[in-house]
Computed example of a mutant assay.
Amino acid sequence: MSNKSSISIPVLFDGQAFRNDFINWYYHQKRDLPWRRTEDPYHIWVSEIMLQQTQVDTVIPYFKHFMNHYPTVYELAHADQQDVLKAWEGLGYYSRARNLHDAVKEVVSTYDGQVPSDKKELKKLKGVGSYTQGAILSIAFNQPEPAVDGNVMRVMSRILEIDEDIAKPKTKTVFEDIIREIISEEDPSAFNQGLMELGALICQPKNPKCDQCPVQSHCQAYAKGVQTELPIKTKAKKQKHETYFNLILRDDTGNYFIEKRPDDGLLAGLWQFPLYSQEKFTEVSLIEWLKQQYGVSIKITSHLGRVKHVFSHVIWEVDILEADIIDQDRPNMDGEWVDDELIKTYPLPNVQQKVLNKLI
């Protein structure tokens, strides 16, 4: 066992039988997913980035759409970032798209368009962490590298009865060491994908389907009846709440005003109706501030309700205010005026899609 890990594999654990049983199960039961029909490392890379924090069924249409637009690294590398964000629209966690775009540019400029098969070179690419690195190397290049995410830690916590807290970053290293020791040298692709598939279909967070599990006989937690008590995972901090006004400004032709979010931070580079914190403004003070800041007089004509959007760390509650500009032309604000059709060509985050649905 590697000296990096304090966890030892049980003496009676038969690694070879375990590998055989669940790799055979994987080949017979695996889902027919579009990224499993290829060994192209770029396609596998895109799928793994999309699958981070996103359900498989959600990813499938986005993956197909994205690959139609950008079938090779060259199309993606030469694309405008706004177009890339538009193709990603609705998938969330947009930093994934920006990092992927930057990394693919690096692949084209530095690696002659070839996704690196070298561990150290691959890790240099923006947005490629240890999990993505392991997934690409094992699935696309058949290298015996661990690809450890929450699914894998849950499965192996139960199989080997490991009570380490998987919410702690250092625990991931423990599981990577364990996977390195038991991974199939002959078929690391099926091994890693099999673990992912087992976690998705059988060894689920609640109510694992132990009666259907192909490796039940190898499971230490099942043998002791403690499978539902594992993995150990401390609860994350409670999400904070933030409230905003979304201002729907219309000019005399009925066009809307939208603005681009900053290039850094949450929802970077995406477009939105102007968003104002309710910690800073009331409706009355917002109207006054717009007059002082831009010399624009507005009249709120309707309240279109509230939308809610849950991010991983914060919950937004957004009150939608529809307003007309009074007695003047468009104000000198930094953004674009768009109609009902043109606005659909701009990359909007999910929360703004919810707002738009109230309007159109």
Rank of each mutant, 00 (worst) to 15 (best):
K4M: 14
I7R: 09
N24M: 09
R31N: 13
R31D: 13
T38Y: 14
T38Q: 08
E39N: 15
D40W: 12
P41I: 10
P41C: 12
W45N: 09
E48L: 11
L51D: 12
Q53L: 08
T54V: 15
T54H: 10
Y74M: 08
E75G: 10
H78N: 15
A79F: 03
V84C: 07
N99Q: 13
H101D: 04
V108R: 03
Y111R: 12
Y111K: 13
S117V: 02
S117N: 15
D118I: 14
K119A: 11
K124V: 02
G134M: 07
S138P: 07
A140K: 05
P144F: 03
A147H: 08
R154S: 11
R158E: 09
E164A: 14
D165S: 02
D165L: 05
K168V: 11
K172H: 05
S189Q: 07
F191R: 05
N192F: 08
Q193A: 04
Q193M: 04
L195T: 06
K206L: 07
P208H: 01
C210H: 01
D211L: 00
P214W: 00
S217W: 00
C219D: 03
A223F: 00
K235L: 12
Q239C: 01
K240Q: 11
H241W: 00
Y244R: 02
F245K: 01
N255S: 05
E259R: 11
R261D: 01
R261E: 01
F273M: 12
P274N: 05
Y276R: 09
K280M: 04
K291L: 12
Q292A: 13
Q293S: 12
K299M: 10
R306T: 15
R306D: 15
V310I: 15
F311D: 09
V314T: 15
D327L: 11
P331R: 06
E336Y: 05
T345H: 13
Y346E: 03
K358A: 06
K358W: 02
